[in-house]
Design a protein around this nucleic acid. Structure first.
Lengths: 138, 138
DNA sequence: CAGCATTCTGGACTGAGTCAAGAGTTTGGC
DNA sequence: GCCAAACTCTTGACTCAGTCCAGAATGCTG
């Protein structure tokens, strides 16, 4: 699987380094993790990384479309490796837990606004706010 | 119109102060403004405010449902007074300009995921990413 | 108009994220 | 295999949004 990551990186003209492979692995292993969490995970895998390397790597991955960055209101940046499919997120207002949710309306849903304001829309990001099962007290 | 704001505040058990009225006026006058922009607007209206008063007031208004806070990935917090209706946002990836867009799918759209994961969903927030007319160079 | 609760002010502080320069790795050509 | 050039990582200083706190000021109720 590291081989697959290497191919991905090379395919985008990026050098293959232990840091990058570890960051990609961390994002895959723990979806919706914050930069700090990812840094910790990478450290426990390869010993040490600088914060800057993680930020840098995440930024490049996002730019290349390998991962997605999400930042709901009131949260710090989070990353996930599910790209290309059309899924959205459920966020608990109380505990901030975030879960994936597949869009029920087909391939690229909610893009019904496409024609407005002269914008050229390339992505619809949907966040559902509510209470998770644990937090909605009975 | 200040009277209406006063009624709103009192109705929610809040004291009426010049700062609060001015903050509400600023949010109404300039939708999608950042805290800094709002602070500037308030200052030019009533002379001076502390940053803390603005943060505090905005926080209370959001909590009471008088305004809405939005924070797309990579942006600082922004506020708007359009609440209750169901509209979404178009954000330009290049210049970060943000415009309102009415949902084309009816009253509370995109809530088709309602049944999943045991969440109790109360709001669907939709952000369309793309290029605004100015930024999509021809 | 007096007293109390709420709100505002000012200043110090936190923490995510950025910048920049130099050291260390990768990589592709020899 | 080896070397230079390009890329990437490290380190440390820095920015900036947002928070915390204690004391002063203001709005509200009787």
């Amino acid at each position: 699987m590291d081989l697959a990551v290497e191919q991905q990186l090379k395919g985008h003209g990026l050098q293959v380094t232990v840091q990058r492979v570890a960051v990609m692995a961390a994002v895959s292993a723990r979806p919706h993790a914050t930069t700090e969490e990812l840094t910790d995970d990478v450290r426990s895998n390869i010993g040490s990384v600088s914060r800057q390397a993680v930020y840098d790597t995440l930024g490049i991955f996002v730019e290349k479309g390998l991962i997605r960055k999400i930042q709901p209101t009131g949260s710090v940046a989070r990353y996930e490796d599910r790209v290309g499919d059309n899924h959205h997120h459920l966020v608990c207002r109380t505990c901030s837990v975030m879960v994936d949710i597949d869009c029920a309306v087909g391939e690229t849903p909610c893009l019904t606004a496409e024609t407005d304001h002269g914008f050229e829309i390339d992505e619809a990001e949907v966040v559902y706010w509510g209470q998770c099962p644990q937090c909605k007290t009975p």
